[in-house]
Design a protein around this nucleic acid. Structure first.
Lengths: 258, 258
DNA sequence: TTCTTTGTTTCGTAATAAGAAACACCTGTT
DNA sequence: AACAGGTGTTTCTTATTACGAAACAAAGAA
């Protein structure tokens, strides 16, 4: 007899969710104390403490002078997940090559659960700022790489992703209309690469080129990003895309025979 | 009244530990099904299923065609933890520089919970194999970087680490005696850098140089590793150490004024 | 088709996670 | 030095809930 008339059996485990919430909050706050966490997520200090003790036991969190922080076990497991990605070594070296040849910031991302995840990243010598970071997630429709990937996913998959995550705006230029997005994707498919003109960050332009697997499936996308004052006309429309396509061609050939 | 006469109150949360065990097992097995996991960690299928559902909800695991895999959320959080490390950008660029100048594999690692964790890694053009990987953990006494760090930790801290993790052997050359280790550390402190002569992997030699913070605390260590047939005599004993020390000097200066 | 194996759900109960409050510990203040 | 105010930690009790067993569903294979 469940006292609170909810559906009797839950399909998720509450205490695990609490732990995950704590981790999320710890990341959001850049570290926190027991009391801060207890207040933030509305559970008792004692409970928070027990969760932290459990997580600390396995190095998922660490305690530096009283404040708890995210531990490097996440990097361990995340690094493992990264290595699982087929051809990641080659991708990393191509990202480097592109950064060297263009001088701009280059990243490679793939799709997981409808979000774009950064798997490799390299800042060129012109060293532009960038919000990207290993493992960082973005909405796919907001960035060049994400759009390049979407353009090569089955339409129903794209629809699923839209349904799940929506089309939130990051700037005034973000595509927020479903039909507009589908038109854009069509366009990208024809052209072979995608543009991002301040759709994720004001003043930031980028070019995205998809990486296709041997079976015609899209594995991810490379993106070269830089400030709009450097990324325009010929260089933006042709030169950099050409470099990118030749680099991606190489890696696609390598992946086929390995 | 606890039926099993154990100490009544636990300080850890069992269901969270189960989830963590599942994640660990998932990593160990390179993905697994519900039934496989249930068998491996000895809990019921139903329980495993509920854990996986909870973890999947937050993208900690993903389900590819029936088998569950580690998800990229770990990379997200791990990447965050990595960025928290002070001066990581400079460290990464110096690792690159060292890889370019020596042609060997270079890594930077720090200490957490008595283990050495790889924070940056770069293979030089001579491209030697290496078990290292972003986030990978090693026993500190088995590797050059780890020993370089230990040499600059307070003695009681080193003792703590030994007590917690022991001195397991990886090869015949691994240091397994406490007194021998302390002598070696003394030696490293005098010399300023450390050697690894096949102590972690047969045929692999490496040099470790500590990175010291402004307050005389050790932040981590760089290591240059290569096959023993390339890493010997002058090059091993002087040339590479000199390059490393000059690079580390630079970064130490930069860190002081930033 | 039927049989086998897997993933998922249901359900009752025994285990246990969570809160409240006491305790311990530190730090700064008066 | 004593104290006050804030931590983190532990204790204890109860209501919650996580667990296993078994039923159910779904998907291949024979």
């Amino acid at each position: 007899m469940p006292p609170h008339g909810s559906t009797s059996t839950a399909t998720r485990i509450k205490s695990v969710e609490t732990s995950l919430t704590i981790i999320e909050e710890l990341k959001r706050q850049n570290g926190a104390t027991v009391t801060e966490l207890a207040a933030a997520i509305d559970v008792s200090k004692g409970t928070v403490h027990k969760h932290l003790t459990t997580l600390r036991e396995h190095d998922y969190v660490v305690n530096n002078d009283g404040t708890y922080q995210i531990g490097l076990t996440f990097l361990d497991i995340g690094g493992y997940a990264l290595c699982q990605f087929d051809g990641i070594k080659q991708v990393e070296s191509k990202v480097r090559e592109l950064a060297d040849r263009t001088g701009e910031t280059v990243q490679f991302s793939t799709e997981q659960h409808g979000r774009s995840v950064v798997l490799a990243r390299e800042a060129g010598h012109k060293g532009v700022f960038s919000r990207a970071r290993l493992g960082k997630r973005f909405h796919m429709h907001q960035i060049s790489g994400g759009k390049a990937i979407l353009a090569h996913l089955p339409k129903e998959r794209v629809q699923e992703i839209i349904d799940r995550h929506g089309l939130p705006a990051a700037t005034d230029a973000t595509i927020t209309s479903e039909t507009e997005l589908f038109e854009e994707l069509e366009c990208i498919r024809d052209r072979g690469y995608s543009f991002n003109k301040g759709e994720s960050t004001d003043g930031l332009h980028a070019i995205g080129v998809p990486l296709m697997g041997p079976e015609g499936d899209v594995l991810g996308a490379f993106a070269v990003a830089g400030p709009s004052h450097r990324m325009h006309s010929e260089r933006f429309k042709d030169e950099i895309p050409d470099v990118m396509r030749s680099v991606v061609n190489e890696i696609e050939l390598n992946l086929t025979y390995s």
